[in-house]
Amino acid sequence: MSDSDRDSAGGPGDHALLEFEHVDKYFGDTHVLKDISLDVEDGEVCVVIGPSGSGKSTLLRCANRLEEIQNGEIRLDGRSISDPDADINRLRQRIGMVFQSFNLFPHKTAIENLTLAPRKVRGTGEAAARQRAEELLAEVGLSDQADSYPNQLSGGQQQRVAIARALAMDPRVMLFDEVTSALDPELVGEVLEVMRGLADEGMTMMVVTHEMGFAREVADRVVLMDEGRIVETGAPESFFENPETERGEQFLSKLL
């Protein structure tokens, strides 16, 4: 996106919705994120790809502070997430996260998974929370499974419930951490379809994935990471047809 687009994106000031600024992250002595700077604009679908161990999942987890960073800053809508004094519980309500392993609450039915956080965190009334949850379950095509426990659902259904659960807090941005990697191949499509629908509605999304077809089709921008660095960013057409860097070319050649 150009700078003029960024200005017209609105909101207070001229910042992007989700900003990473010179982020460094270490696990012990291992330097896993090296000086990462990245802006995700309002309404943008930013797909992060790269070989395993390149730091892409870690980057995503830093964005809602499931991991702490050692240098730099991460901001949502201009407010620091990485600041030790940040009201992280409040900020996390604005950041939906979907995990590779679903992480649905097994002791709650599908609809209770959706209503728990709105009720307990935001104090939404039972009836209002249920109504919103029913709408969201309908949106992910699972109205008939509202009273099922996660154990009774397929992997694809569980992941769709998990997406709806994150949406129930009305987040400003959604983070997807390899959400189809634990699924049987025939169940991947239904989850990607839900994500495609969200993108079409204009949801701001940061997606870590190995699904290159999805990246190509849905991404506004592709970010290639390798060894803790952002190697290349670009529009999907130009990146997949004509990568600018040698590393990008290498990565793509291994896929084909």
Binding site: R92, F105, A117, V121
Partner: peptide, 26 residues
């Protein structure tokens, strides 16, 4: 599973709330 605490926290629950609502029942 650790992911249970992470999922609860990622929805904006505090540590105590996540323990009470999600971890302890399991």
């Amino acid at each position: 599973h650790d992911g249970q605490m992470e999922a609860a926290r990622s929805l904006g629950m505090g540590y105590v709330q996540a323990m009470r609502e999600v971890v302890i029942p399991q």
